[in-house]
Simulated assay, not measured.
Amino acid sequence: MRKKVAKFSILPILAGSVFFSFSTKDAANLEVYATHPNETFEYTAQTMENTPVDVVKTPKALPKLGKSYIGFKEAVAFKESGGDYQSINEYGYMGKYQFGKGTLKLIGIYNSENFLDSPELQEAAFYANASRNKWILIRDIKRFEGKKINGVVITESGILAAAHLAGPGSVKKYLRSWGATAFSDAFGTSIAHYMKRFGGYDTSFVQPNRRAKAIVANA
């Protein structure tokens, strides 16, 4: 989706990139675990409230996150909202990853105001949604990964990014029609564009779960 990139301060940048980015269960003091393989994912994170102000400095450059899961989700976030947790576009899509209310309900989030005010919940939502989409599309990932459709090499990360944009059902139709059944969002962004832009990331960290829900521990 094409969004206006909002200006944001140093603290949200550090909070987003340091405290809510993870590629393993222990990265950045953020834990991800399932209470049951088919139940919910819980997240815990440290806060910055006790960090001295003079310790927080502007980085010379944002770190290169490469093709890791962290790199994947931050790349999607930058495309969606410029990484702004408070972003709401003209169509009502919300937060850093621009979720619609319908998708949020599928992963157990019913209070939009609480969602916007909680970076932890937004990060949990991105993972839960990717986990659910991966479960829905797991056969298509196995069938089409490495093949080329409309000139784009199909990868798991490209499929998951496209599902974030268009929903897993639209991605299934696109893949199974070999690109004949196309989809573009309200901004004209296509599945093929997301497949290409976000292809080649390592998203093996995302575990498929049909019942994945976004829950922040102790919330």
Rank of each mutant, 00 (worst) to 15 (best):
S23I: 01
T24C: 07
T24Q: 04
K25V: 10
K25T: 11
K25G: 15
A28V: 09
A34T: 06
A34P: 01
T35F: 05
H36V: 11
P37I: 03
N38M: 09
E39S: 14
F41K: 01
F41Y: 13
Q46D: 12
T47M: 00
T47A: 11
E49N: 10
E49R: 08
N50L: 15
P52C: 08
P52M: 04
V53Y: 05
V53T: 10
V55S: 12
P59F: 11
L62Q: 11
P63F: 10
G66N: 09
S68Q: 05
Y69I: 03
I70Q: 10
G71K: 06
F72T: 04
K73D: 08
A75E: 05
A75H: 00
V76E: 01
A77R: 01
A77P: 06
F78L: 12
K79M: 10
E80V: 06
S81E: 03
I88C: 04
E90H: 02
Y91A: 10
M94G: 10
K96S: 01
F99N: 01
G100F: 02
K101W: 12
G102C: 04
G102M: 05
G102Y: 07
L104H: 02
I107H: 00
Y110I: 04
E113D: 13
N114C: 00
N114Y: 09
F115G: 03
L116W: 05
L116A: 01
D117E: 13
S118G: 08
E120K: 05
E120F: 01
L121V: 02
L121C: 07
Q122L: 01
Q122R: 07
E123K: 03
F126G: 01
A128Y: 01
A130D: 00
S131Y: 01
S131G: 08
S131D: 02
N133P: 00
N133I: 02
N133L: 05
W135R: 06
I136W: 00
I136E: 03
I138C: 00
R139G: 12
D140M: 12
I141A: 08
K142W: 04
K142S: 13
R143A: 14
F144D: 06
G146D: 03
G146H: 10
G146V: 05
K148Q: 08
